[in-house]
Amino acid sequence: MARKTTNQKAWFLVIPVVLLVAFNAIIPLMTVVNYSFQETFGDNVFFWEGVKWYEQVLRSSRFHDSLLRQIIFTSIILVIEIPLGVAIALAMPKKGIWVSVCLVLMALPLLIPWNVVGAMWNIYALPELGLLGRIINGMGFDYNFTQGPLAAWFTTIMMDVWHWTSLVVLLAYAALSSIPDAYYQAAKIDGATPWAVFRYIQLPKMKRVLTIAILLRFMDSFMIYTEPFVLTGGGPGNTTTFLSIDLVKIALGQFDLGPAAAMSLIYFLIVLLTSWIFYTLMMNNEEK
């Protein structure tokens, strides 16, 4: 890697991004903070409410439920997608024309817009009309994601795995193909088991990209909105109402600006804090 030089003028290159993001992020964020401490009855009349909304949100069982659902969902997809992605990357051929064929086909889901993914899975999983629905029902399961909570969860998770595992595969594969042949040869000579090769050669090489993959998947899945909304609309009942779906229901559906703003900020802080801790841990580890 090229050695970095210290140059404070580099700030000039960063300024456009900072300004754009500031316009897009700081102003809206201030608005949200503003709302979260006030009550309004329309007409731009606001009353100071202090931390009332925060207390209300933190005490509401509705928030607890959707947060819990969110955590379970994110955990499940991380547990499935990361190892699955790594396993597929390991099983990929190392060279030949099949590599590019595989990579292009695997990248396909990543290019499909979120709402299309939701609609596509809706069609695909419908119990009567969809291929997946037919297959599962044909195997003797009573499968209907619009009615059974378990089926709804299963479909949502499958959809996310379908959409995002390739990201892990591509990142892991890129890391794996940067390992020189001599490492594998040396390991063979040293009598290393396949597990040892994975543990001491492949995993350390993939560590950096896996950090990125985990962080991205954590953030994105924690904020997932479009796909489950299009697929299940948060139902049946509230069983697939994740945090962001709930938030939009409150903010736009009920127009409770105060609670919605307070909830937004709490939500934001959770993501921020978790990501920051993870990022710091991984980066510190790397510098050692």
């Binding site: 608005t31 904020m223 736009l252 939500y267 934001f268 993501v271």
Partner: peptide, 12 residues
């Protein structure tokens, strides 16, 4: 900024 849920920013 990528960690901010899109829904958070919808209103502002």
């Amino acid at each position: 900024n990528r960690m901010a849920p899109p829904a958070v920013f919808a209103l502002p």
